[in-house]
Amino acid sequence: ATNIVGKVKWYNSTKNFGFIEQDNGGKDVFVHKSAVDAAGLHSLEEGQDVIFDLEEKQGKAYAVNLRIK
C-alpha cells in the first residue's frame, strides 16, 4: 500500500523504532530508524502527521518512504 496517512503514536530514538497510527483505522505500523534516516529526519515526534508506504516482510508490516505531511 502507498501514500498512507497517519500520526506518530510514539518513537524511541534510543531504541531506534516506534509506531505510526494509521488514520484509516488499520493496525499500528512499525517504523525503524532506517526509514527515519532515509527521510532525512533525525527523529519523529509523538502526534506528528506523516505519509508512508507499507511493506511486509516475514508477515510483519512496516513503514517505508516516510515523509512529513
Rank of each mutant, 00 (worst) to 15 (best):
L41A: 10
G6A: 04
G18W: 02
N24L: 07
A39Q: 05
V29M: 04
Y11T: 02
E56I: 10
F52V: 05
S13Y: 12
G25C: 05
V29W: 07
V5A: 11
A63D: 00
D49T: 15
G26D: 09
A1K: 09
D53S: 04
T2D: 14
I4F: 06
Q58W: 15
E45I: 15
E56V: 12
V36G: 02
L41I: 09
S43D: 13
K57F: 13
E45W: 15
V5I: 07
D37N: 13
E21L: 14
V31W: 02
V31C: 04
S13G: 10
H42L: 11
E46V: 14
K69H: 09
G59I: 06
G6R: 01
E21I: 15
N12K: 14
G47A: 07
H42G: 08
E46G: 11
A39I: 07
L44S: 01
F30E: 02
D23E: 14
N16W: 08
F52M: 04
L44E: 01
D23L: 15
V50W: 02
D37W: 15
N3C: 05
D37K: 15
G47M: 06
E45M: 13
D28F: 06
K27W: 09
K7A: 15
G40K: 10
V36K: 04
D28I: 05
K27N: 11
F30C: 03
V36W: 03
L66M: 06
K57D: 10
L41Q: 12
L54T: 10
T2N: 14
V8E: 00
D53A: 04
F52K: 00
Q22T: 14
H42W: 09
N24G: 13
S43A: 13
A63H: 01
A63C: 04
E46S: 15
H42F: 13
V36P: 01
D28Y: 06
V36F: 05
K57R: 11
A38C: 04
T2M: 12
E45T: 13
S43N: 14
N16P: 02
G25W: 10
E46Q: 14
D28G: 04
Q22C: 04
G18H: 00
F52N: 00
S13L: 09
Y62P: 01
E55K: 09
I68A: 08
T14I: 12
I4E: 06
L66F: 02
D28V: 05
H32D: 05
V50L: 11
V5R: 14
N24C: 05
G40P: 02
K57S: 09
E56Q: 12
I20T: 01
K9I: 08
K33P: 02
S43L: 13
G26H: 13
N3K: 06
N16G: 13
Y11I: 03
V5P: 11
V29D: 01
G6T: 01
K33W: 10
N12F: 08
Y62S: 11
Q22V: 14
K7V: 06
V36D: 01
E56T: 14
S43E: 09
A63N: 00
I4P: 02
I20A: 01
A38P: 03
Q22N: 07
F17Y: 14
K15G: 05
L41Y: 14
D23Y: 15
A63K: 00
H32N: 06
F17K: 02
L41E: 13
I4K: 11
Y62R: 11
N16I: 02
G6F: 01
E56W: 10
A38F: 07
F30Q: 02
Q58M: 12
N65A: 08
D28E: 08
W10L: 05
N12S: 14
L41T: 06
A38K: 11
V5N: 11
V64K: 13
I4D: 02
A1W: 07
G59Y: 11
K15H: 07
I20W: 00
K57E: 10
A1L: 12
A38S: 13
A61F: 13
T14R: 10
V64T: 09
V5D: 07
Y62M: 10
I51T: 14
Q48E: 13
L44W: 03
G18R: 00
V36A: 05
V50D: 00
F30T: 02
V50H: 01
F17W: 08
F30N: 01
I51G: 04
F19H: 02
K60M: 13
K33Q: 10
D53F: 03
D53P: 00
F30M: 04
L44T: 01
G6P: 00
K9G: 03
A38I: 14
D37P: 02
L54R: 11
Y62E: 13
E45F: 15
G47R: 14
K69G: 06
I68N: 11
A61Y: 11
H32S: 07
F52A: 03
Y62I: 06
E55P: 02
Y11G: 01
D37M: 12
I51V: 10
S34A: 15
S34R: 09
H32R: 03
D49R: 15
L66D: 00
K15L: 14
E21P: 01
V64C: 04
I20V: 07
V5F: 13
Y62D: 03
F17A: 02
V31L: 12
I20C: 02
E46A: 15
D37Y: 13
V50F: 05
V64Q: 09
A61L: 12
S43Q: 09
Y11W: 10
R67V: 10
H32Q: 04
N3H: 08
L54D: 01
G59E: 08
N16H: 15
N16K: 13
V5M: 10
V31A: 03
E46L: 12
E56L: 13
A38T: 09
Q22A: 11
A38E: 14
R67W: 08
G26F: 10
F17D: 01
K57A: 11
G26L: 08
Q58D: 12
Y11P: 01
L54S: 06
V29Q: 03
N16M: 12
G25S: 12
V29T: 09
L66W: 00
A63P: 02
N12H: 12
L44P: 03
W10I: 04
D28S: 06
D53E: 05
G25H: 14
K69F: 06
D23W: 15
A35T: 11
D53V: 04
E55C: 04
V50E: 00
V31S: 01
R67S: 11
G25T: 14
D49V: 15
S43T: 14
F17P: 00
K27L: 13
Q22Y: 15
W10F: 09
T14S: 10
A35E: 11
E45G: 12
S43K: 10
Y62Q: 11
V5W: 04
W10E: 02
A63Q: 00
K9F: 03
Y62T: 08
Q48V: 14
G47H: 14
I51W: 14
V64W: 10
D49L: 15
Q22G: 08
F17S: 03
K33T: 05
D37S: 14
W10Y: 10
W10C: 04
N16R: 14
I4W: 06
A39D: 02
N16Y: 12
R67T: 10
N16F: 10
K15M: 10
T2F: 14
S34P: 03
F19Y: 06
A38M: 08
V29P: 01
D49Y: 15
D28K: 04
K33M: 05
S13H: 12
F19D: 00
I4Q: 12
H32K: 03
F30I: 04
F17G: 03
A1P: 14
K7E: 03
Y11V: 03
W10R: 05
G18C: 02
Y62F: 11
A63G: 09
E56D: 10
H42M: 12
Q48M: 09
G6M: 01
I51M: 08
T14M: 13
E21V: 15
N12M: 11
I20N: 00
I51K: 14
I20H: 00
Q48C: 05
Y11M: 03
W10T: 04
D53L: 03
D23P: 15
G6H: 01
D23A: 15
T2L: 12
G18F: 03
I51L: 09
L54W: 06
V8M: 03
E55F: 09
N24E: 07
D28H: 07
S34Q: 10
E21Q: 13
L66H: 00
V31N: 00
I4M: 14
V64S: 10
L41D: 03
K9E: 01
K33L: 05
L54I: 14
K15I: 12
E56G: 11
A35K: 06
D28L: 07
K27T: 10
N12C: 06
A61P: 09
G40T: 04
N12P: 02
G25Q: 10
T2Y: 15
F19L: 05
K15E: 05
V36C: 04
K33F: 07
A35M: 07
A38L: 10
N24F: 14
K69Y: 06
G26W: 11
I68T: 08
N24T: 12
A35P: 01
A63T: 03
N65W: 03
I20M: 04
G18K: 00
S13M: 09
N24I: 08
K15N: 07
L41N: 05
G25Y: 09
Y11C: 02
G40N: 09
W10N: 03
F19N: 01
Q22F: 15
L54K: 13
V64N: 08
Q48H: 06
A1E: 11
G6V: 00
G59R: 10
G26Q: 10
A39T: 08
D37R: 14
F52H: 02
S13Q: 11
H42K: 11
I20D: 00
E21S: 15
K57C: 05
A1Q: 09
V29S: 05
N3F: 05
T14A: 14
V50S: 01
D37H: 15
K7D: 01
S13R: 09
